[in-house]
Amino acid sequence: MTPHILLVEDDPVSRAFLAAAAEALPARVDAVDTLAAARERIRAGRYDLWLVDANLPDGPGASLLREPGRRDAPALAHTAACEQDTLARLREAGFLDVLVKPLTASALRAAIRRATARTEGGGARQEQAPLWDDARALTALNGQHAHVDALRGLFLEELPGARDAVAAAARAGDADAMRATLHRLRASCGFVGAMRMDAAVAALHAAPDSPEALAEFLAAAQDTLSSR
């Protein structure tokens, strides 16, 4: 199926680039430049994915995530900011992932494929992200391979405890405790390029009551630990 995408971006050059890159998937793209225009589009029809600029002339892009017309469509943020705390806040707000501009057309299309694969086939797993993204980790750590290796080792040491804490919170029905652990884990995933864990953490954070999201999280943790 050809995904129907809502693109919200106020810069004309960025909007034209993102729209053209997404349409090459192929995809149908409706591009607007304000939150007000996006809300009109949301009321008029349903989308398979939202691509939302983090900062728009009439407010923060994350405010769209509270729209009643969202109907569980996954949303990706895009921003020129690269500070880790800013990216973490956007994920905490409910974005599945955050794309840092400038980005390549291939990186955008890969992110769209990952996001839309989650909703195809009634939520069945259609495509998995790779366990590790070396390029992303090297970018986060200034190209230092030794730092990547060291942090991945530490990440793998800490992962069982985080996994068990999430599972315990799920059994107790404590969504706040679960989200707190997932929030910390999400930042670590980004630093070390743990792509499958990152996707699973984002999905469970967005739907802490979902048995499917919890099962995916536990499976991703097991696969990641088995890669040592």
Rank of each mutant, 00 (worst) to 15 (best):
R152D: 00
A168F: 10
H145L: 09
L138P: 10
Q126E: 05
P160R: 14
L159C: 08
L159N: 11
D133G: 01
N142K: 14
A140Q: 11
V100M: 01
V148Y: 06
A150D: 04
N142A: 15
G123D: 02
D149L: 15
D149F: 08
Q144G: 00
L159E: 08
L151Q: 11
H145A: 15
A93E: 07
A107R: 14
R125N: 02
N142F: 13
Q126F: 00
F95E: 01
A167C: 04
T139K: 12
L156Y: 01
P102N: 05
A168D: 15
T139W: 05
F155E: 07
K101F: 00
L103I: 09
P102L: 01
A93H: 04
V166I: 13
A162Q: 15
D97R: 05
D97W: 06
T116Q: 05
K101C: 00
D97I: 08
A170S: 06
L141S: 10
L99D: 05
A117D: 07
P160Q: 12
D149H: 13
A110K: 12
T116P: 11
A137S: 11
R109C: 03
G143Q: 06
A168P: 12
L103H: 03
R171L: 13
E157A: 13
H147W: 12
A105W: 10
A129T: 04
L103Y: 03
E120G: 01
L156H: 03
W132P: 06
A170K: 11
A162S: 14
R89D: 13
F95M: 05
R163S: 07
G122N: 04
H147Y: 05
Q128R: 15
D134I: 13
R152E: 00
A117G: 03
D134C: 01
L108E: 14
D149T: 15
A169I: 14
P130D: 14
V148K: 08
A169V: 11
L99M: 11
V148I: 05
D164G: 04
I112C: 03
A165L: 01
R163F: 01
D133I: 06
R136H: 10
A146T: 15
E158H: 14
Q126C: 08
Q126R: 09
E92T: 15
A93Y: 05
E157I: 11
A124N: 05
V148E: 06
F95W: 03
R171W: 02
A168H: 15
I112N: 10
L154G: 08
P102M: 02
E157F: 02
D164E: 15
L154R: 14
A150C: 01
E158P: 00
E120W: 04
G122W: 00
L159M: 11
A111D: 02
